[in-house]
Design a protein around this nucleic acid. Sequence first.
DNA 1: CAAAGAGCTGAGCTATTGCTCACAATAGTG
DNA 2: CACTATTGTGAGCAATAGCTCAGCTCTTTG
Lengths: 206, 206
Amino acid sequence: MPSADRRLHPRRKPRQVRAELTRDRILTAAAHVFAEHGYAAGTTNRIAERARVSIGSLYQYFPNKDAILAELLVRHIDRGTWTQADELDLSPGSLEATARALVRDAIDNHRDDPQLLRIMIEEASFSQEVLDTIERHGEKRVGQVRDLLARHPDVHVRDLDTAAELIVTTVEMNTHMLMAGPRTIPVETFENELVAMVTRYLRGDQ
Amino acid sequence: MPSADRRLHPRRKPRQVRAELTRDRILTAAAHVFAEHGYAAGTTNRIAERARVSIGSLYQYFPNKDAILAELLVRHIDRGTWTQADELDLSPGSLEATARALVRDAIDNHRDDPQLLRIMIEEASFSQEVLDTIERHGEKRVGQVRDLLARHPDVHVRDLDTAAELIVTTVEMNTHMLMAGPRTIPVETFENELVAMVTRYLRGDQ
DNA sequence: CAAAGAGCTGAGCTATTGCTCACAATAGTG
DNA sequence: CACTATTGTGAGCAATAGCTCAGCTCTTTG
């Protein structure tokens, strides 16, 4: 299992529609296989088999296994989450609504394929390039939340940076746990409590 | 990589001191190797090498690779954490102290070897037997917290069970994130904010 | 001290993986 | 249609993993 292969870009760019289709089939299959078997046990041969594509074709578009997961991850990140946060009500008294927006965003983000996201978050040992992408994305989110908190009149916390980091992790991870495990708590209950937690923390009236 | 081997118990029980020593050496080495290379790349040969023990000896005490991580995990779980929670002050006004105890507990639990714990939490694909152990441990903790909340006069939340689950996950995961990544936030600041969050949530004064 | 069993060794087996490459099939172009 | 570029194939290679086993060394015991 070669771990430090830096080449993540396809060795051949698709020029015909057929090729683009094959690429997509591979990615779709990979998503299913990774979600079902995990990253380590999700072999490239299995992916090719599931995509009804020869193993050779797979390696025409992806230089190695890591690149497949990387592409999957980048696609997931780029696919417009976080669109709601810009158009938020920042007037006094709207803190709970703001918190709810954040929580909803996280929940939506996990709905598509919680298993695959689990793999991507937990199992993968990524190359530095991909790790940087994740890191940047995380910082971006924290930054956005920080700005949001800074603008909102109802927010009273000691340190904005810490608060932002804390909130992002809390919302993300709790949602993650809820969707990953056996659904023992109804989603609405969960959402309400999580929103309550974030709201009360941010409001800060002791 | 056989994944569903149910036999987790050693094939030979140590009867001489020498054997017990070897076993411990293997476990210690495994902890280091897993922490350093991750689970997948932490090969049994590497573990044996680091333990200065032949690969054959390793397989006399552990039927397979999974069993090693399993033992490591069980040991970590069994090693008395959570001792503080029983002797807590439950009088009115002590809510923050209670929350702080929970947070401190989590932080202490991560101090020994955060890397190894990271592996154990994230990377391992465990057998059902080990998963059950983890599950039971998690439920136990949530149960303890639930009882704690039920007893404390200052706690005002809608649903105790959800609150308990939420708190355990939040405290655990935030701590986990803090210790795993590059220490960007000082521990005291983190502790204070996390305590504030939990306290305000539990107090529930809207 | 000698027999017996516990403990230990490591070359190497089996299985599997990520991946290559020589070739075949198909699509685009004059 | 002929020719080229693009796309697709899959047997099989090299590497490496987990793990076995025949036989050695060390402890214990009488």
